[in-house]
Design a protein around this nucleic acid. Sequence first.
DNA 1: TTGTATGCGTTATCAC
DNA 2: GTGATAACGCATACAA
Lengths: 347, 347
Amino acid sequence: MPIEQPAKTNLPTLEDVAARAGVSTATVSRSLNAAEQVSRGTRERVLAAVRELGYAPNFGAQALAAKRTNTFGAIIPTMENAIFARGLQAFQEQLSDEGITLLVASSSYSAELEEQQIRTLVARGADAMLLIGHDRTPESYSFLERRKIPYVVAWVYDSDEQRLSIGFDNRKAMAELTRRVLDLGHESIAVITAECSENDRARERLAGVKDVMRENDFDLDSLRVIETTYSISNGAEAFSELMQGGQKPTAVLCGNDVLAAGALMTARQLRIEVPRDVSITGFDDIELAQIVSPALTTVHVPHREMGRGAARLLMALRNDKDPGHSIELEASLRWRETLGPAASKSN
Amino acid sequence: MPIEQPAKTNLPTLEDVAARAGVSTATVSRSLNAAEQVSRGTRERVLAAVRELGYAPNFGAQALAAKRTNTFGAIIPTMENAIFARGLQAFQEQLSDEGITLLVASSSYSAELEEQQIRTLVARGADAMLLIGHDRTPESYSFLERRKIPYVVAWVYDSDEQRLSIGFDNRKAMAELTRRVLDLGHESIAVITAECSENDRARERLAGVKDVMRENDFDLDSLRVIETTYSISNGAEAFSELMQGGQKPTAVLCGNDVLAAGALMTARQLRIEVPRDVSITGFDDIELAQIVSPALTTVHVPHREMGRGAARLLMALRNDKDPGHSIELEASLRWRETLGPAASKSN
DNA sequence: TTGTATGCGTTATCAC
DNA sequence: GTGATAACGCATACAA
């Protein structure tokens, strides 16, 4: 029985390729990473050897020697719904054009968990990080700075913040929506929002509502606010809580489309007609907003622009170029079917 | 001006920790990776030094020395909708319990692209891989085998296939659904499916439909099939194509919930009432299925079980334990609102 | 343009 | 239990 394979069936290394091509390992390395430094002939011989041996670089060795992994990290609050999907997709596409692979983790909206994820991704070799919002533990920031890991904050733009960011003004966007709601004669407003404590987007959106109510001399105490985790079923539950009891709202502003979809579902079950009996609005304008019936009036968020822009900022940072300043994008109202004039006071 | 930081602001290494704790690098390494081999006292001193210095292991070096990254890879066909989200989430959770980080990439339903992604993830150090379905290039398989990268195939169970897999019988599940449809008196059936050429799940589902039609002596030529990429808008378009022209179907079986949601949307626009005028069914039972109105009759897929199970199989494989054989899970009908009796022949 | 030699930060195999 | 020390596979400064 002939021995077909040597016992050690190890993968080919640079050295093997070098031997086969009759050059040094340095030349092989250069042929692969800095082709212009190598004469055409030798490069071709090397590449042939690479193909014949099925060589692929060892990631660990490469990272160790080059001190660079060409890997970026992103931590998003959740993957369970599509809120960040489109933006992340764009981010990813842009990066892979530049030869960067993306590592994604989710924090479940917990600053504590996010800090841990940051450490994990950085340990795993991330050269740069994409983060959502400004709220996180001081340790997260000091860790990144100490490690000199470039990062950009996305999904928010706040001129008060120093950190490099790309996004939109959550407060302003929600204020604009609220203004429209009040213009339609709504006087009894409720808000279903994510927990605000570690989530500046949610907090700012709520602040936007309050700003406008104040502007219009509303009593802020009359504003009912339910904080809950983003999910369809939580939206459903919160809405049903709002609609039982004496003072029913005529407009329910939801912190995002997922909550709004849940609210809409409950409305249907309770035979509450939207927007005749009650208006419901969302935020984000994910695909869901157009699928539900009636289609959701919501705030359109520039997902793809944020993703692409964040990638560009991060690449600049990683390459020690000047990224410029933070970028403010616009979030604009999408008027669809779930927002209408206030119902006559019949409840 | 006092020098606050040494010029070289490098990260602490094992050696630094060792020096500070007054032990050798070997002991530090052991304290971190095999705590039981180290006396309690020294371990505590080491851990203290680690904390004080903010030490974190260098990933590249670790991978290089240990020949193991504790990273698994998964390639799913798409991230653009939630089809794989729940399963992947479960997979991820199970893995992170075991200290494994997950790298995810998507192939856009292209075998060519998938092969490239496999290479990328393996190059980045993936110890093991999760793949969806059996269809892929022969090179993908030979690459994995040559590299001795363990993998498992999920989302399918096919007793004819040798490869380790966990999933359900797509053909059987779709056949079961089709049987119910025919029982309701439908005689004019149409199918909206993903492209079948590189997608065994889609192919098997379509085969399931045909099986049952044959069983019931239907003319297969009368079956209208539209192949398109999974997306709401494609589902919408395909449905509208089906509903114009002479021979309108009374039941439209969609290859997944996303297509079905699109069909439903168009139906609403065309004022076609579901299921009175036409029945529509989905597949997957993602959250979307319950949000749309009327709620989608669909095939429930055991997402989380697949994810968890795949993680267990892969861990066993990676640890050179016997994973046992492929696992068949059940996919069962979820009867909701979009499937009803065939409309009287009025078209 | 090409080769030589060194170092990157761990883990693991030995001894002790 | 603990300490030397040899890999691990590559990139790169320097020399030729």
